[in-house]
Design a binder for these strands. Sequence first.
DNA 1: GAAATAGTGTCTATAAGACAGTATTTT
DNA 2: AAAATACTGTCTTATAGACACTATTTC
Lengths: 230, 230
Amino acid sequence: MAEKKAIADALICTVDVVLLTLHEQQLQVALIEREHAPFEGALALPGGYVRTAQDRSTTEAAVRVLREKAALASPWLEQLGSFSGPERDPRGWSLSVAYYALVPAALLEGQPGLQLRPVARLPRLPFDHRAIIEAAVARVRTKSQYSSLPVHLCGETFTLPQLQAVYEALLGEPINKVSFRRKIDQLGMVEPVEGAQELGRANRPAQLYRLRRAFRQKLSLLERGLNARN
Amino acid sequence: MAEKKAIADALICTVDVVLLTLHEQQLQVALIEREHAPFEGALALPGGYVRTAQDRSTTEAAVRVLREKAALASPWLEQLGSFSGPERDPRGWSLSVAYYALVPAALLEGQPGLQLRPVARLPRLPFDHRAIIEAAVARVRTKSQYSSLPVHLCGETFTLPQLQAVYEALLGEPINKVSFRRKIDQLGMVEPVEGAQELGRANRPAQLYRLRRAFRQKLSLLERGLNARN
DNA sequence: GAAATAGTGTCTATAAGACAGTATTTT
DNA sequence: AAAATACTGTCTTATAGACACTATTTC
């Protein structure tokens, strides 16, 4: 017993990253033109082979992909799940571990290789990239209902009205202002930047906030969720 | 450009299933003795190689593992995530796609190969199986707060007091009976079995319920969660 | 000071939880 | 009829949402 049979079937193993941002009040996904076959030249998710000599996990492979293809250092990054099968890649039976990343739109500007597309109107995509993006969007929307996840779409500092607009764009419906502020307060994820306000507009300036250190790497969760509606 | 380099690094690709059930009011995981090296004879999660000739996805591989190793046909099964790295398996860089399954305890009885262990007191386990189980348990507990997931730990029919006890065992705290029934009503996942009651005990018999057809394959979700406490 | 939006106080509506009552079985 | 637990009605408390008022800026 325990003979050494064929140790494992050959199988293509990749990572793909659904890089999401908020641009023009819409959730958008960053796509790049593929440099190699198959589907050379087509718009697709940034991705690549897992390199066992280099990557100490698929998460590290995803971090590497983001660094190499989108020049991003440490955005919010979480595993979404695996997508596998004999048909999804013309090269053969393949498995892709998909991740999603959230970044402020400003970090993607001036990167000619990256093309933003609204997730509500996706172009034709190779492999099962459409299904992967849709799964990522569903995950992000669900998590936005009861967590601090959306702050990772904001920049270093932001106002509460801006943060509320981000939540509203993700949830697709208006949120009651008073309730929203009570929830943000409960989440305890942000702190005011003392003396910093967003000036320059013809109205009362808004207080600037930033994400607390403790929430850079982890999420804050609500027991009851943000019950949208106004 | 697009030269055919080494198409992909060799890499061990497996699936592991965290098979959970409720036994003696405790969440327990089913482990089996490994038949082959490495860790031959040790208790571990049921798992196996992804067989590209046979399995049309990693989900199908997990279904096959459950059938072959636990004689289970179609329990609740969901992907948990992937676990990967050079160190987790002594054979080399490996990736395991982990799944979790929920079954009524009755389906596991009389299977000498399966050993139940409370997730609160796990034995020493090979690979990163402890971390995988802990991730599965965390996922199941979180989902139990706002979904119909726990019904899959009940048998074909069950009473509301039984279902409440399942939720309480998972959440680890008592739930208000009136609120619980209101929530179950909102979820709309169960229907009474006409004329069927659980008799035989020295008290008023409880109405038997069953999961509605529409919820066999999908979950019902609450907007506000089951806010435990009594 | 008019316009515009930020931020807050407070009332109302809805949902959760406590409690106690009635219901129905076995012994 | 006593014991036990199922089920339900209803009051109380907590949370969410509506609304309006004050605050602070630019023009």
